[in-house]
Design a protein around this nucleic acid. Sequence first.
DNA 1: CGTATCCTGACC
DNA 2: GGTCAGGATACG
Length: 261
Amino acid sequence: MPELPEVERASRILRKAAAGQVIERVALLHPSLKRRVSPYRLRTLRGARIVTIVRRGKHQLLELDDRRTIHVHFRMAGDWQVGRRDEPLPPHARGTIELANGARIALVDPRALSTVDLHAANASPLLELGLEPSDPALTPAVLMAAFARKHGPIKPVLLDQRIIAGIGNIYAAEAMWRAKISPMAAASKLTRARIVRLLGAIRHVLGPAARLPGRYRDARDSSRIAVYGREGKPCRRCGTAIARTVQAGRSTYFCPRCQRT
DNA sequence: CGTATCCTGACC
DNA sequence: GGTCAGGATACG
């Protein structure tokens, strides 16, 4: 599920269930997660209070009252499921956070690619992340400068979390379609006008979580997904068959007619 | 820059 | 049984 809008939704669910609550136990169930935090360090979490949950890009940071941070990334298929400790675990539960109030938050991830890390007090999680799409500091000029340093096509550049945090494969395709820019267009050659359109499109497709503060407008119609996964189907603007190609190992869907290089 | 890798499930 | 999957990173 997770791109920025989905992680935003998930972190809100987590916030509602866990902010201000005391940890009873954190358990890592899958071997690939167990490798990341030792049983000893997990045990030190008992009694800590979760003060806030912060989302940065697709990362979730659970900040504890002792200044440590539980750092979660859903990767391809993670999600939270909130329940109670006495209920059976949901399928594909890879880890759990049990709270003193009896709640149990399960990290559910069929593919088991999610990551959980525990950062020491005051050790910043060292996220090499670019600006949030909702950050007013993210301007066309800033983007243009970042793109100028990049070689190659624009679409893989949009997936580079060090430039803009939170764009994933689906919404990269959607934003490019909306901005009428070909995924193969050279990043360094995009004109200012096209970058203005692209930035607007990114904020639109990523939804409310990506909007500039002070604006509101809900875009949750099915037209949010106009190209992704629609190979061979008609473009919703011009009717041309949507094409699929592979860039940097990822599928790219686009309209070969109305998205220009 | 591209490719392999971590995992498991869904689908052909 | 092979291919693909909404992510990120290590490597050539």
